[in-house]
């Protein structure tokens, strides 16, 4: 298997994640697409780690997964807190910081 095949897969996965973040207005789906982008970077880390026969990339994926778990926990808590106030999760409704 060529190295570039993995790069193409990871790149397309990252682009799909960004596509979702730009397209959707639902906060939960946006968070999920963010996870998709993190996942693509993890794939890239592991592919490069395998390519250079160096385990450091794999260990970085370990840290990336931990950060993703913390991020999702805090992000979902914020979404729930916002939902309690606004009764919606659409980003169009969250305009307190305007003006």
């Amino acid at each position: 298997m060529l190295m570039s095949h993995y790069l193409v897969v990871a790149g397309i996965l990252f682009s799909i994640g960004m596509f979702g973040v730009l397209l959707r207005r639902n906060t939960l789906v946006m968070l999920m697409c963010l996870e998709l982008m993190l996942n693509a970077v993890n794939l890239l880390f592991v592919a490069f780690s395998r390519y250079n026969l160096n385990l450091d990339g794999n260990l970085f994926v370990f840290f990336a997964i931990t950060v993703a778990a913390a991020e999702v926990a805090v992000g979902l808590a914020i979404v729930v807190a916002l939902f309690k106030r606004k009764d919606t999760v659409q980003v169009d409704a969250f305009t307190e910081m305007k003006n």
């Binding site: 060529l2 190295m3 570039s4 790149g11 799909i16 960004m18 730009l22 390519y51």
Partner: peptide, 24 residues
């Protein structure tokens, strides 16, 4: 547009000769 541009960029980058190699 962002999706297409990013995808094309990644594919171009991946096809560069120093990365288009088999895994050791």
């Amino acid at each position: 547009i962002a999706f297409l541009m990013l995808t094309v960029g990644f594919v171009m980058m991946a096809m560069s000769p120093e990365l288009n190699q088999p895994m050791p």
